[in-house]
Amino acid sequence: MPQEQHSQSMAHDEQHENDAVIGAGTTHEAAADAAIDDLDAILDDIGAVLETNAEEYVSGFVQKGGQ
């Protein structure tokens, strides 16, 4: 059953989340270091987006009608 498999991964997540809540108060600097690495990787991934003209991109999205 996929359900059993899932409850296992959820249990793991819960533990992870508890850690994160505790971590917010205690190991803030370590968490911030890891986040900086993540940010570099993400900036690499979105490099092409960052090279385009943001204003044209945003103002070009105008939708009519709907609902």
Binding site: I42, D45, I46, A48, V49, T52, A54, Y57, V58
Partner: peptide, 22 residues
Amino acid sequence: MRLAQLDLDYHDIANGALFASL
């Protein structure tokens, strides 16, 4: 404006890069 663009890119399911990267 860049931030507004990235907010839209997060929701672009065809060519968006940010959400998949996150």
